[in-house]
Design a protein around this nucleic acid. Structure first.
Lengths: 217, 217, 217, 217
DNA sequence: CATGAATGAGACTTCATTCAT
DNA sequence: TATGAATGAAGTCTCATTCAT
């Protein structure tokens, strides 16, 4: 009946309000990646989100809290997905590792979220509270995830016995390298720069390191 | 009597003046590594160099130019040493690679110069002209150097045929990861953080990757 | 049954609306006394009155007008009571003065209204139009009241001949001092502060000043 | 000889620098009295002192510290003078009290410094740290001073036995009343206001209260 | 050459006020 | 009437840069 027609007019303001935090987080991520934390201006975050300076402070009490919200929104939930992937997988550890690295690249490295790591690396010394937060929230869980897979491979006799933590770091390093590069030199108009093609590097890296891990027949 | 004054440039006052730019660059390197570019204050650079704020501006016309001078002064000479090492070496390519990575770590990665790389990664987008300079002066030569060694190994039949550029990147990545880490989280008092021990990681990485490169017997 | 609903204006919803301005004035008085005019925030006035910020502006067009309404509402009726007391009294002038001062303390000095005086003293220079209003409405009538009693005492031969206006001011000063003190230092947690006990000060003051006024036997 | 002519040109900059804190304190006192602490703008303090916004912060690290410096500069030294006066005096206690009150009025009450008390009364609840500071630095010493004189009069049999602290408060109250009034309503253009003439009020107050204190012959 | 007092643009943040719903 | 999300002017404070000495 005609009662269903009543709906649309009441929505915009409310829908707008609901969407604000999301819009602000997206604008903030974008600008933080471009400029870094210190050099990013709160005015411009607001402007890119289509709101005024004051509105930003309605949702986040300070620039630092805004940044932490960006981290949580973009990274915290992704770790859990990785854990799930590992839990459900029942192929070989080499395949699992390949799958995990490729997924990481698609879901994080190749995403605006990867820029966060660049920012944190650069500015964490000026925000001690952030160091602890990011370590607890991102670095430790990610490290645990990759160590677990390496240990699985060793336990199942697929990999040589090697120090899991160092192997995990060596596994991640090229991905992090690319992710960071993408948001620094990769975003600059440089002539004749070293061009890293992610998919090829990922393939080569896996080829190299999985072969390095495996026990000799 | 007065004839002994014949070497005026060695008088302490004079030497002090001559050394000013050098002292300022050292103080700036130290502080930029600690705080990053934006958060470092010119007052403190001057204070650490033992001069007044005004004096800084006699030698460098702006904070930005000071930063560029720091980059140039610390990086431009480093690549040449590597080239020399490679030219003189006549052992196996595996040994050369191991030697090269270990030397890089000792001479650059484990040095204040590594802090520069952290800053450049983080802030190059705010200094467009720096991007080209750093790419030409540092990144490209380093890449060429490592590519050369990989190609040498392949040509001599020591390594499998693999894309040299990607292998070179995969080789460098963990070293750069560590170097950057050292100047960010490594300098923060974080409880329960992931602890990377450089020598062990380097050993594991070489073990992994050289085995991955070598042709099967 | 439905006939009992005959008094619609007493329904809770309606009473609530009628009471709004009153509730807002009470909340505003409370908060202005605590924080002063400048530091009091309109959000909190509204919140304490149980309404939204917007509603406040339906009743008072600005913070400044709200403040003036608070002043008017709390002070305008007070002087008349004093006049009545004086008119009905027929004991000695000393007794009348004692009665008047004690009543002032109970009805005004020891009341939130005294807080208003503190605010007005402090901020009247920022509200030029308030100065005239408060002078006409509060200060002059109060002065007239006290002068009248002093003159009565002189006329009846109970007091020495003294300038009535100055005596009236000297009479009021300690009461005003206490009233203001109560709303400033009296409300702060200060260690080892000078502690004024109102009843004792009032007694001592009357003892001192009535004896000073009386004619020598 | 002509060597003495060399002097004048080297002075202005340095003399200027020496005078800065003093000039800033005077401008600050003036503006704080006019507007109160919260409503006074640091820009305007600087402008009235003839310097830029930034220069103010070269001498005082925050608005609050500036205010405390104003208090110290204008009040703290005056208490000591009062103590000295009391110590050296050897007339009657009535004369001492009269002398003390008249001196207080000339040196503080009738001076820009009196405005400070108005400000503190009004805003101390918003600056808890200031409450303690002002109580320790100003109120307690002043109270001790006046109590001492009252007790001297009682001990020497000149005054009746009365509670010294309350008497001291009653003594000070009209002076404080006038001092505060001077900086609030006294500075507003009000028509037909109650006009307190300080010298007359002081005379009447002393007449009243000294007579009230003295023992009956 | 060297100094350091002075500047002033600009950063983050607050809050009285408005207005679409 | 009532709401509360949104605004933006204005406040305190910082810091790269200048310039008289």
């Amino acid at each position: 009946m005609s009662t269903t027609v009543a709906e649309p007019e009441s929505a915009p303001r409310q829908r707008r309000k609901q969407a604000r935090p999301q819009e602000l987080l997206e604008a903030a991520l974008e600008l933080f990646c471009e400029k870094g934390f210190a050099a990013a201006r709160t005015d411009e975050v607001a402007r890119r989100a289509g709101v005024s300076k004051g509105t930003l402070y309605l949702y986040y009490p300070s620039k630092e809290e805004l940044f932490k919200a960006v981290v949580r929104h973009n990274l915290s939930s992704l770790i859990a997905e990785g854990q799930e992937l590992v839990g459900q997988f029942d192929g070989s550890s080499s395949e699992l590792l390949a799958k995990l690295l490729r997924t990481w690249w698609q879901r994080i490295g190749n995403t605006p979220a990867a820029g966060i790591h660049k920012i944190v690396l650069a500015e964490v010394r000026n925000f001690p509270e952030l160091a602890q937060f990011y370590s607890d929230e991102v670095i430790l869980p990610a490290d645990r995830l990759f160590c677990g897979v390496v240990e699985r491979g060793i336990a199942r006799g697929e990999f040589r016995a090697m120090p899991a933590h160092e192997v995990a770091t060596a596994l991640m390093a090229p991905l992090i390298f690319m992710a960071v590069h993408r948001h620094s030199f990769g975003a600059c108009p440089v002539h004749g720069s070293v061009d890293v093609e992610p998919e090829r590097l990922l393939g080569t890296h896996l080829d190299l390191v999985l072969r390095g891990l495996e026990r000799r027949g």
